[in-house]
Nucleic acid binder design. Structure first.
Length: 200
DNA sequence: AACGGGATGGTT
DNA sequence: ACCATCCCGTTG
C-alpha cells in the first residue's frame, strides 16, 4: 500500500476532492493502526469562496492552509474536529475536507474511541471520523504524504469502480450554492440526506 | 474580558 | 427543528 505522491494534491482543489475518493486514510496515532476508504469530500477553494477559512482570514489557525499540498489542516468546531488536506500551490490557501470513510481496519479501536458499536456511524461525518482515527488539532501541520507520518493517505489495495455524486456542501450557508461536495454514489457510509445523495 | 458564530451531531 | 458545547476571531 503506497502513499500518494504530493503532485497529485497540487491540482485544482475540485480535482483533488474527486481524486481522493476511494483512497485510504490511515492513522497510527496512539500506537493503534486504523484505516478507512474515503467516500465523501468537499472542496474549499482558494478564491471567491467565502466558506473557505483561508479566504476569510490568515491567522495562526489557518496558516497551514497556505503551506505545502498534503499538509493536514485540522480545526475544532462545536467541540469536535474537522480534518482537511491542503491542496494546490504554496500560498493559495485551500483544502479538501474529508467528510466520511468506510471503515477497513482497526474497527475495534475505532469503536472504543467512538464509544459506539454501530459500524454504520463509526466514521460517517467529519467530526466522527476524526474521533475514530484519534485526530485532533495536534495533528494540524503534519505531512500526509510522508510514509513516516502517523496519519497518511495511501492507494487502496484494490481499485474499485464507482460513480461520483455531487451536491452543495453540507452546513455551508455563507457561500453560493456551487456543487463542491463529492461522494461515492450509493455508498452507505456517506453522510447527509437521501435527497442530497441521489443528486449527481 | 466579553461576545457570537460556526465546514457538528445527537435528540425531539 | 432544537441545542449542547467550545474554540477562535473580533470588538470594546
Amino acid at each position: 500500500m503506497h502513499h500518494i505522491p504530493r503532485n497529485k494534491l497540487k491540482q485544482s482543489t475540485e480535482e483533488v476532492a474527486k481524486f481522493l475518493l476511494g483512497k485510504i486514510l490511515r492513522s497510527d496515532l496512539g500506537k493503534k493502526s486504523v484505516s478507512g476508504r474515503i467516500v465523501e469530500t468537499e472542496a474549499y477553494l482558494p478564491s471567491r469562496d467565502s466558506a473557505c477559512h483561508a479566504n476569510k482570514y490568515r491567522t495562526r489557525r489557518t496558516e497551514v492552509m497556505f503551506g505545502e499540498a498534503g499538509t493536514a489542516y485540522v480545526y475544532p468546531i462545536h467541540a469536535k474536529h474537522c480534518f482537511n488536506i491542503v491542496t494546490e500551490q504554496l500560498g493559495k490557501g485551500c483544502a479538501v475536507l474529508i467528510r466520511a470513510l468506510e471503515p477497513i481496519t482497526g474497527i475495534e479501536t475505532m469503536q472504543a474511541r467512538r464509544n459506539l458499536d454501530d459500524i454504520k456511524r463509526l466514521t460517517t461525518g467529519p467530526g466522527c471520523l476524526c474521533q475514530a482515527l484519534g485526530i485532533d488539532k495536534n495533528q494540524t501541520g503534519i505531512d500526509l504524504c510522508d510514509e513516516q507520518s502517523p496519519v497518511r493517505i495511501c492507494d487502496p489495495a484494490e481499485e474499485l469502480e464507482f460513480q461520483i455524486g455531487t451536491s452543495v456542501r453540507i452546513g455551508v450557508t455563507s457561500a453560493k450554492k456551487r456543487k463542491l461536495r463529492f461522494f461515492v454514489l450509493g455508498n452507505s457510509f456517506v453522510s447527509g440526506s437521501k435527497k442530497l445523495n441521489t443528486a449527481s
